[in-house]
Simulated scan of single mutants.
Amino acid sequence: MADMDVTRFGHAAVLVEAAGSRTLIDPGAFSLPATFALTDLDAVVVTHQHADHVDRDRIGDLVAANPRARLLAEPETAAELDGFEPTGAGASFEVGGVTLTGVGSRHAEILPSLPRVGNVGVLVTADGEPTLFHPGDTYEYRPSGVDVLALPLSAPWAKVSETVEFLRAVAPRTAFPIHDCTISEIAYAIYWTHVESHGGVDDLQRLAQDGSLAH
């Protein structure tokens, strides 16, 4: 397989470079400032409407700096963002040599009293390259054939037993953490050690907020 370059830009924001295309997923409020200075993007994908996945105050500047980028978002979110097309479960979009495919439809339950908003994760695939899965905010959907998993590590809707079970069910060759700005550095190992010890994946990459990997 060819290399796929993956770079974190804080919390759930991930830049995926594969088959000559650059796809940015979930540029949210917890993302690094450098996220919103990125250029030469071929696609911007937003999995759902929560602020830690889409920063409405800054995404306009990002879009303006990337006029040729395809803009894709979960349907409820797309309806509220200028220029974004709705995604959906099984919907595929060709962006250069990459295919972006929607996975799932709804956010994980936070509280029974709160309505569940839409959430569409994304598979990034290209001929001869690994397949990456970014689920957004849910463990409900487990596509097959995932090589690289962006693993949500901590959230109001998650507990560590669910994190581990999700990782084992998807069974990627490589996984790295996302959605971890809710964990202090001093407590990070409480979560990550359980993933390492019980997740059943040998190649776990604890990427920093600005870390990267080639796979």
Rank of each mutant, 00 (worst) to 15 (best):
P27V: 02
P33N: 11
I25H: 00
A73H: 09
T87Y: 10
L123A: 07
L32E: 05
D57A: 14
H53I: 09
L100D: 04
G90T: 15
F36R: 00
H48Y: 05
G83T: 06
G90R: 15
Q49C: 12
G97C: 14
P86H: 14
H50P: 11
L100F: 07
E80G: 07
S105A: 08
N119C: 15
A91D: 09
T35Y: 12
A64I: 04
R68S: 05
G118D: 11
L81A: 10
L100P: 00
D26Y: 08
G97S: 13
R68D: 12
T87I: 06
A73L: 05
L32T: 02
S92V: 03
L24I: 12
L32W: 03
R22M: 05
P86A: 15
A18P: 07
A78Q: 11
L41Y: 09
D55S: 13
L114H: 02
A37I: 02
R58V: 00
G102D: 02
Q49N: 03
P115M: 07
A19S: 08
E80V: 12
P27C: 04
R106E: 14
A108W: 01
L123N: 13
H50W: 12
E76F: 03
A51H: 12
G118L: 01
L32Y: 05
D57E: 15
L38W: 05
T39W: 10
L32D: 01
G96P: 10
R22K: 12
G83E: 02
R58I: 07
G20Y: 01
G60I: 15
G96C: 09
V95R: 04
S21Y: 09
T39M: 00
T77Y: 06
V46M: 10
T39F: 12
S105Q: 12
R56D: 03
N66C: 06
I110L: 06
E85M: 13
A43K: 07
G83I: 15
V44N: 15
S92H: 07
G97T: 14
V95M: 00
T87S: 15
V103I: 13
V122Y: 11
I59F: 06
D40S: 09
P67T: 04
E94F: 01
T35E: 10
V63A: 08
D40N: 12
A51Y: 11
A43L: 08
P75Q: 14
S113T: 14
A91F: 03
G88Y: 13
G96Y: 04
S31P: 02
S21A: 15
E76Y: 05
V98L: 13
T47D: 08
V95F: 10
S31F: 00
D52L: 09
D42W: 02
L123E: 09
P67S: 13
G28L: 01
A73M: 14
T77W: 06
V63S: 00
E94M: 02
L100N: 05
R116M: 07
V46T: 13
V44K: 05
V95T: 02
S21R: 09
L123V: 15
E80Q: 14
H107A: 01
G121I: 00
D61K: 14
D40E: 15
D52I: 07
G118R: 07
L38S: 06
D55I: 06
T101V: 03
E80L: 08
G60S: 12
E109V: 09
T47R: 08
L72Q: 01
A64C: 04
D57L: 06
A79F: 05
R70W: 04
A51P: 00
E109I: 06
V44S: 12
D42Q: 10
A18L: 05
L72C: 04
